[in-house]
Amino acid sequence: MPKRVLVVEDNELNLKLFCDLLRAHGYLAEPVRDGREAVATALRFEPDLVIMDIQMPHVTGFELIERMQRDAALSRIPIMAVTAYASHEDEERIRTAGARSYVAKPISLARFVEQVERLLASASNEAV
């Protein structure tokens, strides 16, 4: 059964790129364009991984990560942040919020897939 990945991204081109890339690697990708829908969609979709843009309108990725970490049904799901923020302080803030990793924009396709695979493998090992 393919691993399920929720992609939260307000930029339509990035959302399509991430979902197409995930699907090409055998994952089931569920797009979410508006961060306000992310938690409800995650509860319904039950993803194995969440890929989250940090800079979004209405609700930031930081806020969504923190909400997911407080929800018992979602807190076990690893989160990978995708962001234009690339400083050491930004990485620290992203990890402190609860993301397990991050990829800086513009993304390297190989690094993106590598991080997805690493996080999913890590989450599978924790579940055993």
Rank of each mutant, 00 (worst) to 15 (best):
Ile77Tyr: 03
Asp20Pro: 01
Ala99Val: 01
Asp34Met: 10
Ile107Pro: 01
Cys19Thr: 12
Leu120Asn: 01
Glu117Cys: 07
Arg23Asp: 08
Val128Ala: 14
Leu120Pro: 00
Glu92Gln: 14
Leu21Ala: 13
Val7Ala: 01
Arg4Gly: 00
Arg44Trp: 05
Arg93Leu: 10
Val7Phe: 02
Glu46Ser: 09
Ala99Met: 05
Ser75Val: 12
Val113His: 07
Leu6Gly: 01
Met80Leu: 13
Val8Pro: 01
Arg70His: 14
Leu22Gln: 01
Val59Thr: 08
Cys19Lys: 04
Ala97Gln: 07
Phe112Gly: 05
Val8Ser: 03
Glu37Asp: 14
Ile54Val: 14
Met56Ile: 06
Glu66Trp: 02
Pro78Ser: 05
Arg23Glu: 15
Ser75Tyr: 07
Ala84Phe: 09
Ala110His: 11
Asp10Ala: 04
Leu17Gln: 10
Val32Pro: 04
Leu119Trp: 02
Ala84Val: 13
Val116Pro: 06
Ala24Met: 15
Ala38Leu: 05
Thr41Leu: 05
Met80Gln: 02
Phe45Thr: 07
Phe62Leu: 06
Leu109Val: 15
Phe62Lys: 01
Glu126Met: 11
Leu13Ser: 13
Pro57Cys: 07
Ala86Tyr: 12
Val128Cys: 07
Pro57Val: 09
Leu109Met: 13
Ala123Ser: 12
Ala86Met: 07
Glu12Asp: 15
Ser75His: 14
Gly26Glu: 08
Ala110Pro: 02
Gly98His: 11
Thr96Asn: 08
Arg111Ala: 13
Leu17Ala: 12
Leu64Met: 04
His58Asn: 09
Pro78Arg: 03
Leu120Phe: 02
Asp71Ser: 11
Gln115Arg: 15
Ala73Asp: 13
Leu28Ala: 08
Glu89Val: 13
Asp90Pro: 03
Asp53Leu: 10
Ala42Asp: 08
Pro78Glu: 04
Glu37Leu: 14
Ala40Trp: 00
Pro57Thr: 10
Ala38Asp: 02
Ile51Asn: 00
Leu21Ser: 13
His88Ala: 13
